[in-house]
């Protein structure tokens, strides 16, 4: 199902709770699927003794991927034309994640209708871990 432009207006927000207690196993799973085995994401001894972190932490791309699920569930399959983010804070095991898309612009080009969104993902403390934007084709 794709979004219809008539159901959207500037300022409309869509929020989804995505993760309640991020497990180290999910970080390991993402490392395996993506091929990003940087040891500070999955290797506790390396992360604490070599890199100097309190523990391992999620790949930025895992957080962008989890946030992307909110987006594709909202705008529909194969509808995104742009998706970009800035990683503002690390995401640690045990964290919760909630993502919000807010409509910033609706416009037409010659061939299609498009919607622009602001994206924000926060952790269980309400701290912003990711900010970004997306653009999608709408009906």
């Amino acid at each position: 199902m794709a979004l219809s432009a008539s159901s959207l207006k500037r300022g409309l927000s869509h929020t989804v709770d995505l993760i309640h207690d991020l497990k180290r196993t999910q970080i390991v799973q993402y490392a395996g699927a993506s091929g990003d085995f940087n040891p500070f994401h999955t290797d506790e001894i390396y992360a604490t003794q070599v890199s100097g972190y309190k523990t391992v932490f999620a790949h930025g791309m895992l957080v962008m991927g989890i946030t992307g699920k909110m987006l594709t569930d909202y705008v529909g399959d194969g509808r995104l034309t742009k998706y970009g983010v800035r990683f503002t804070r690390q995401v640690w095991p045990g964290d919760g994640l909630k993502a919000t898309a807010t409509v910033t612009r609706l416009f037409d080009t010659n061939e299609r209708k498009l919607a622009d969104f602001d994206i924000v993902t926060t952790n269980q403390k309400g701290e912003i871990v990711l900010t970004g934007y997306a653009q999608a084709e709408v009906d």
């Binding site: 940087n38 500070f40 070599v50 930025g60 995104l80 742009k82 983010v85 990683f87």
Partner: peptide, 18 residues
């Protein structure tokens, strides 16, 4: 010897245009 932690490359931004 304990290693002195040294900063490593982190991912700051990612943009896709489809």
């Amino acid at each position: 010897d304990r290693l002195a932690p040294k900063p490593e490359l982190l991912h700051a931004e990612q943009h896709f245009e489809y």
